[in-house]
Write a protein that binds this DNA or RNA. Structure first.
Lengths: 212, 212
DNA sequence: GTCTATACACCGATAGAC
DNA sequence: GTCTATCGGTGTATAGAC
């Protein structure tokens, strides 16, 4: 990998974070990389492909950096702790903001959509692994599908990030509400076998009611 | 309100939905409205102010259209039913997509951020009202703040919408996972007083553990 | 209030010298 | 692999005729 390529890739995520998908351009990225504008097209063909390459590189590095930490997780409580750390860290690095901008642009651009699908899949695979492991030990773990839960978690993070840029106070409030709900779920998940059976029975009622 | 103004406002949300924030322009909106491009600046001053006016008009109409329906809600189960209907309907109309694009653009544009804050506040106020009413009747209703919960709900909707545009199957899966979790919370909320006290006690442990 | 015309900046992308 | 120069197109915004 040449130096110019890496500089352009780094400048692309930087620009996505700073200028948003609406303000991203080959000229802007090249300037940020300290590189000639024509090199974007020489190395990547088009702006869309540049973004795609940058996002793949970025998400591979990010997800990979959590692998060891994720492998150590053995309990639901631990998962929640690491999850909070991850969210805080990725947000501070601006990686969640990059994902959010990518997702917004992906609604109208097929190349960006492909990049977004790749990035989401990488995160989801990683999250799904640990969720499945932790939920396997839990008596109520069979009630929710790990893959689906992983996708829900990703979607929630994206929504929170966009909200945060518009109203940081409201975003914190939303996170607190979600933390409370998660704590309630955690309690439900850690109930003894008697309460657990009661909850399971009740849940059948609710599900039947919702379906009917 | 002149005809040209209304045509431009309608064309703006339409363009936001169809072209996204990155593809929105005065020329594009004017063409969609069947109106001269210079009229955007005559009537609204700038593209940003046009978007702001369009979003305010759109969200006022949308939120207002649910007022009567929301006032009739009396129970948690009813709230969930209406909530699903609302999400489905607003999504089908493209209003959630418009909000998502607005939020994405708002990360870098102060005028758009103001519009986004206004729109979110209108939705949150409406949701908070009914959540507070329903939670008031519930023995565990004091555990979660209605305002915060309303903001969390809004954030989740935005995230799901963006995910849906990238991976509709994954988005449905995420919604199913969230529905399961909501059902579990509903069960917990409808437990009898004995289990309810047990849950409350457990919750204090969890909160203390999370804080410490 | 609406139109044409236009100034000026920026965009993606390419050709061709080096 | 990198550079300059350039094409054609689009963007915001304004001036001025009607």
């Amino acid at each position: 990998m040449t130096d110019t390529r890496t500089k352009l890739l780094a400048a692309t995520t930087e620009s996505l974070r700073h200028d948003g998908i609406a303000g991203l351009s080959a000229r802007g990225v090249a300037a940020r990389a300290g590189v000639n504008q024509a090199l974007v097209f020489y190395h990547f063909g088009s702006v869309g492909e540049l973004v795609q390459a940058a996002v793949r590189t970025s998400v591979d590095a990010s997800v990979g950096s959590y692998r060891a930490r994720f492998d150590e997780i053995g309990s639901l409580a631990e998962l929640l702790t690491v999850g909070r750390e991850l969210h805080e860290r990725e947000r501070a690095l601006g990686n969640v903001a990059v994902m959010a901008q990518l997702m917004a642009g992906a609604q109208q651009d097929l190349t960006l959509a492909e990049a977004a699908r790749y990035a989401m899949a990488r995160w989801n695979d990683q999250i799904e692994d640990v969720v499945r492991r932790v939920l396997g030990d839990n008596p109520l773990g069979d009630l929710v599908d790990p893959g689906r839960l992983a996708q829900a978690i990703s979607a929630v993070f994206i929504g929170l990030e966009l909200y945060d840029g518009v109203d940081p106070v409201g975003s914190s409030a939303a996170i607190e509400a979600l933390e409370t709900l998660v704590a309630m779920l955690q309690v439900a998940a850690e109930l003894g076998p008697v309460s657990s059976r009661a909850l399971r029975a009740k849940l059948r009622q609710v599900s039947a009611r919702a379906a009917g």
